[in-house]
């Protein structure tokens, strides 16, 4: 099986005005991304993530090196046949409605005409924009823009989906929903490439990650291998008292284990926010559109919220 994406020795320079001064956005990058996984392309702002994606999609020409999608070189139009792409901070024709926009891209991708309208409705519903489908894109909020962007990327049912900062500028509720949509895509057998500088957010969903810094690959591997310390476990206890420490240490020592530390667990602010927003009726009203969509469709995100409510 060919990999979804293969990048070999990719270097991309941008000329800086006159003279021979150049900015090296990507340097000697080699990467193979296998099929059916969520791959995180991570790194700080300006590290060359978007540039790499644009070279893969043939929007930029590489200075050196090659890349291809499912074995077809990026220079060929055919390579983009099975790819859906959500650009960074997407801009769309503001005067079209969400439905018209997705339909337009569906036709560009030559979705069969007899199935087109059904397919457009389907993806719009899937990203949770059913209610707003006939509003102009110009009136959409940032989160809605990302969702409609996701819908247009999926309209032709591509095998590979590339998402550039899909949660940038979106509130945690929206981010969590987008995350669960990504996991659903993986369930459908798709390959997803996720670019982000928000490392915490992608942690939960990526199978494999690569980290770029100043255009160079500094780390690549399975997420689990990279973040978890296999021989350590933490135990969360209600009403713990400091005086248990010695006793516990002794108990563990008798079983040839060792107490490393006793810490207060830190919930991420994101999680606190999610829990409280999930409970608050006021906030629900404000986000009614989103919440309703979530309930009706019983999307993964909807379930998530329910679960969190129960657990709290």
């Amino acid at each position: 099986m060919t990999s979804a994406i293969s990048i070999e020795d990719l270097t991309k320079d941008f000329p800086l005005g006159f003279g021979h001064l150049k900015l090296r956005a990507v340097e000697d990058l080699s990467l193979e991304i296998a099929d059916n996984q969520v791959f995180g392309l991570l790194g700080p702002n300006g590290s060359g993530k978007s540039t790499t994606i644009k070279v893969i999609l043939g929007l930029l020409a590489p200075t050196r090196g090659t890349c291809g999608i499912f074995g077809t070189p990026s220079a060929e139009v055919s390579s983009r046949r099975d790819v859906g792409f959500l650009p960074e901070a997407p801009y769309f024709y503001r005067y079209l409605t969400g439905f018209e926009l997705v339909r337009f891209f569906g036709r560009i991708c030559q979705v069969e005409k007899s199935k087109l309208n059904d397919r457009v409705h389907e993806v719009i519903e899937w990203v949770g924009l059913k209610e707003a489908a006939h509003r102009r894109v110009g009136t959409y909020s940032k989160g809605m823009l990302q969702r409609i962007g996701l819908a247009q990327a999926l309209v032709h049912d591509p095998r590979l989906v590339i998402l550039d900062e899909p949660t940038a500028g979106v509130d945690p509720v929206g981010s969590a929903e987008i995350s669960s949509l990504i996991l659903k895509l993986k369930e459908q057998g798709k390959t997803i490439i996720l670019c982000s500088h928000l490392l915490g957010q992608v942690e939960d969903i990526c199978d494999r990650i690569a980290i770029l810094n100043r255009g160079k690959l500094i780390l690549e591997g399975e997420l689990r291998d990279l973040v978890s310390k296999k021989d350590l476990r933490s135990v969360v206890v209600q009403d713990y008292r400091e005086e248990y420490n010695d006793e516990l240490a002794g108990w563990l020592q008798a079983r040839e284990s060792r107490l490393v530390s006793v810490e207060q667990p830190q919930y991420s602010l994101d999680r606190v926010f999610l829990e409280h927003v999930g409970r608050s009726e006021l906030a629900r009203e404000k986000l009614s559109e989103r919440a309703e969509v979530a309930k009706q469709q019983d999307t993964a995100s909807g379930k998530d919220n329910e679960e969190k409510k129960k657990s709290s």
């Binding site: 999609l57 043939g58 801009y91 560009i108």
Partner: peptide, 14 residues
Amino acid sequence: ENKTAITILAKPIF
């Protein structure tokens, strides 16, 4: 300029 071309040209289109 408005980057709408990015979305279109990332599609299978000449």
